[in-house]
Amino acid sequence: MSQIHVTTKINGDETEFLCEPEDTLLDVLRDRLGLTGAKEGCGTGDCGACSVTVDDRLVCSCLMLGAEAEGREIATIEGMADGEVLHPLQRKFIEHAALQCGICTPGILVAAKSLLENNPDPSEEEARYWLAGNLCRCTGYDKIIRAVMDAAAEMRGEIANDPDDSLRRAS
C-alpha cells in the first residue's frame, strides 16, 4: 500500500490529504476529510447525490479519483453558505419546501448553483435538463424546480414571479 499525497483547495481552503490510489474524491471528502455533505447514492454517476465542482465544472465526485484532485479547486455543499448567510438557493429550498428527506438536497443545490452560474436566466425546461442527473425520489421535482426558478429570479434582482407565493410566505 502506497498512499498518494495530494494538495488541493477545498471550499477555498488549502487542503492536503493522503489517499489510496483507488479512493474516489467522494471517499476522500467523506471518509478522510469529514465532509459528509456529498452523499453516495449509487457510486455509478447515475444519481448526482455526490455532486461537487472541480475548477468550477460540475462533476460526480464518485467518478473521480482523489488523486486527480491535485492542484484543483473543489467546491462542496459545505462551502455554499457564506458563514451564517445562506446562499439564495439554500434559502429558497427551505421556503419552497423543496426537500422532503433531504438526501439529494446537497447534490441538487451544488448542481443548481452551477446551472445559475452558467445560465442566470434558465427556462423551466433548461433547469429540468440540467438537473436530470440529480435523482430525487420524494418530491416529484415540482417544488425543486420552483425553488431554483425563484432563486434565479431573486439573484437576477427580480421580484418573486409568483404573487401567491410571496403573499402566503408573508402570512
Binding site: T36, G37, P106
Partner: peptide, 22 residues
C-alpha cells in the same frame, strides 16, 4: 394550515444533517 420553514431545513441545505452513512 400555514407554511412555516421546517426545523431541519438548514441542516439539510448545508450538508450538516447526519444520515445513516454519515
Amino acid at each position: 394550515g400555514t407554511r412555516p420553514n421546517r426545523p431541519d431545513g438548514i441542516d439539510k441545505v448545508t450538508g450538516r444533517a447526519r444520515f445513516g452513512a454519515d
